[in-house]
């Protein structure tokens, strides 16, 4: 088997292993930590009977290992269990919320990724000049404010004072795409701002790293134009690091979604998760946590796979 294929298989296997371990960790984290789950759901004043009831309902009387395998088996078949608080099937409540969350994240990515790469290139082109300095100052400012506050700042100035966009992002299936986009304008703006800063910074660093290589100097000394140098020499070597940057930031975006959804009361998975953390609805938290972690792991895995595929040493072995 060629080396790069072997590395690919290894990386994918590692990703799957990681998913399995993460599922264990989440299960373990919610079941074996000090503090009785039943107690923390019902509070200190719960009666012993109520505690016993809820323990039975949660299956807490069975051994942890068999509970884990039951849970995992259910997961594989798409059965995420039932919510303690509402008694509803988690998978069906999650379905539409996951769709909404992905909708939000998708539009944020569509705007943020090209913009970040463009601004990163701009910062490299005008390195140490005012566009670069402005970009890094804005970056510093935007990573110094938590996501939810960026949300409220935009809501206050753009939504309330200017009245350009709705302050609450309610969407449902009856809306047209245009109406939906109008509804999510502010959360998309917030998410874009949040990942833009990181992505731009990392893109800038990745391209600068390539531009400082000796082969770029060789290309300059060949009398090539700047465009040819970037297109033929810098770009083929920048793809892997840039894809890496994009993937890492998409993973970051998925987390940012949680907070932003709460700010704009958007009916997505993040809000669902936070709601049920406060209600201590463990099965929902487990399911949502695992889905978020899985997205994060898969995106990181894709980043690594692209790096392997783009490495000429691995693609063309000696």
């Amino acid at each position: 088997m060629p080396l790069f294929l072997k590395l690919l298989v290894q990386r994918i296997a590692l990703g799957l292993l990681l998913l399995l371990l993460v599922s264990m960790l989440i299960f373990w984290g919610t079941n074996i930590l000090p503090g009785d789950v039943a107690q923390s759901i019902l509070g200190q004043s719960a009666t012993p009977e109520a505690l016993a009831n809820i323990r039975a309902e949660l299956g807490l009387n069975e051994p942890a290992l068999s509970r884990y395998f039951d849970w995992l088996g259910g997961l594989v078949q798409g059965d995420l269990g039932t919510a303690l608080t509402s008694g509803k099937d988690i998978a069906s409540s999650l379905g539409s919320r996951l769709k909404n969350t992905l909708f939000l994240a998708f539009w944020a990515a569509v705007i943020a990724v090209p913009l970040a790469i463009f601004l990163g290139l701009l910062a490299v082109r005008y390195r140490e000049r005012w566009p670069d300095k402005l970009i890094s100052a804005v970056t510093l400012a935007s990573i110094s404010v938590p996501e939810f506050l960026i949300g409220y700042i935009l809501m206050y100035f753009v939504g309330v004072k200017l009245g350009w966009a709705p302050t609450v992002s309610m969407i449902h299936d009856g809306l047209s795409l245009g109406q939906k986009l109008n509804a999510i304008a502010l959360p998309v703006a917030v998410l874009t701002m949040v990942v833009l800063a990181h992505m731009m910074r990392m893109t800038r660093a990745a391209i600068l790293n390539v531009m400082q290589s000796a082969y770029i100097e060789t290309a300059e000394l060949k009398g090539l134009t700047m465009f040819t140098i970037i297109w033929r020499h810098a770009l083929p070597n920048s793809i892997a690091p840039i894809v890496n940057v994009v993937m890492i930031n998409l993973a970051y975006l998925v987390v940012g979604v949680v907070v932003v959804e709460v700010v704009f009361t958007y009916p997505g998975m993040g809000q669902y998760l936070v709601d049920h953390v406060s209600k201590r609805d463990v099965p929902v938290v487990q399911a949502c946590g695992l889905i978020f972690a899985a997205v994060y792991i898969v995106l990181n895995m894709v980043a690594d796979i692209v790096s392997i595929l783009a490495n000429p040493r691995l693609r063309h072995p000696k």
């Binding site: 290589s213 000796a214 082969y215 100097e217 060789t218 290309a219 033929r232 020499h233 083929p236 070597n237 000429p312 040493r313």
Partner: peptide, 10 residues
């Protein structure tokens, strides 16, 4: 250093 001066991807 020819090793560094050649573009590894071409």
């Amino acid at each position: 250093s020819a090793a560094a001066s050649f573009n590894p991807a071409k």
